[in-house]
């Protein structure tokens, strides 16, 4: 019920903004063709805004559609979307004055792959949201499950479900969660180099170099990506070379160091189910540990890697 109420409130807010001509465009979510397939919607009239919705399948990071937009734009934004927006405002990719943020506190989105596993790959036709539990319905079956067990990994780790900045808040703020412990990253760090290499080689043998991770990422916006260059060709283009696949991802995540809000859009976009957050979160963790910084959590802090102080830690220098 809560979700339907939020959806109605989002619709009302968007219609009001468009009717009063406060914005030219509202970016939000519409129902997809199947449950948990929420799809981005660009509403330019109050009638179009009628299609807006809110449910457990609104997983895309909409910050990705806001860079360098003309005119006034409103966006329906979860906690992670807002963090990416804040980071992009700092990089002059979004003009905050022309953006109206309809913030929606988010308790997590459901992972289709986990649902699929639960029902053994059967077609899901409806998801009934009852708050803490959902009923997954198909042709001849109906299964009840806890929402917490079905959330995306990124949502389970998320500490910023509440939007950090907003012009209007839909619904109520959620209780704050404790600190992230980066348990899986520490576990991976503790392995030997050979074990780590073996695991990554296995993971990245799946990569088909579709670059969906890059395209889904709001922070990956270089006009020409290094993997697309042919003169010079920085990196091999074939997905058959696992080493190049790892290198591609390593450079991508390094480029997002101190900018990545750990929204998990890359991992959700991956059609091969590669554990990409194993790499992105390593940098999130290091930035936090070395510079005590997190991307996009307020408008004041400068991006960690865009600032210099004389007492920046230097553990990487050769010991003399």
């Amino acid at each position: 019920m809560r979700m339907q109420k939020l959806a109605a409130q989002i619709k009302d807010a968007a219609k009001k903004l468009l009717e009063e001509k406060k914005v030219d465009l509202v970016v939000g979510f519409a129902e997809g063709s199947l449950p948990l397939r929420g799809t981005p919607l660009f509403a330019r009239t109050p009638e179009e805004a009628d299609k807006l919705t809110w449910n457990r399948g609104c997983e895309n990071n909409l910050a990705n559609y806001l860079r360098k937009r003309e005119g006034k734009v409103a966006v329906v934004a979860k906690g992670c979307d807002v963090r990416s927006i804040v980071a992009l405002v700092k990089e002059n990719q979004i003009n905050r004055d022309n953006l109206y943020i309809i913030g929606v506190p988010c308790s997590g989105m459901i992972d289709r792959k986990k649902v699929n596993q639960l029902v053994g790959g059967k077609d899901v036709l409806e998801i009934e949201d009852n708050g803490d539990t959902v009923v997954i319905k198909g042709k001849d079956f109906s299964e009840t499950a806890r929402v917490a067990d079905l959330l995306h990994n990124s949502c389970q780790d998320c500490r910023y479900g509440n939007p950090v900045v907003y012009d209007e808040l839909i619904g109520e703020l959620l209780p704050e969660k404790g600190e992230d412990d980066f348990a899986e990253i520490k576990e991976f760090e503790a392995k030997t180099a050979a074990e780590r290499r073996a695991y990554l080689a296995e993971e990245f043998s799946k990569c088909i170099r579709c670059y969906a991770c890059r395209n889904a990422c709001p922070m990956c916006y270089c006009e020409e990506c290094f993997v697309d260059c042919s003169t010079p060709q920085w990196i091999g283009k074939s997905a058959a070379d696992i080493q190049d696949n790892i290198l591609f991802q390593a450079v991508r995540v390094f480029h997002s160091a101190g900018r990545c809000a750990d929204c998990g859009a890359c991992e959700r976009a991956c059609p091969m189910g590669i554990n990409l957050r194993l790499l992105t979160r390593k940098l999130v963790k290091d930035v936090k540990e070395l510079f005590n910084a997190e991307a996009g959590v307020n408008m004041e802090d400068k991006a960690a890697l865009a600032t210099f102080t004389a007492d920046d830690p230097e553990p990487f220098l050769v010991k003399e």
Binding site: A194, R196, F254, A257, K282, D286, L305, F316, V318
Partner: peptide, 19 residues
């Protein structure tokens, strides 16, 4: 950060050096 990441993905420890 780069050294951390490279060693994390399995480049031999000590092979990357900065000064």
């Amino acid at each position: 950060m780069l050294k951390n990441l490279l060693e994390y993905i399995g480049v031999d420890e000590g092979r990357v050096n900065f000064s």
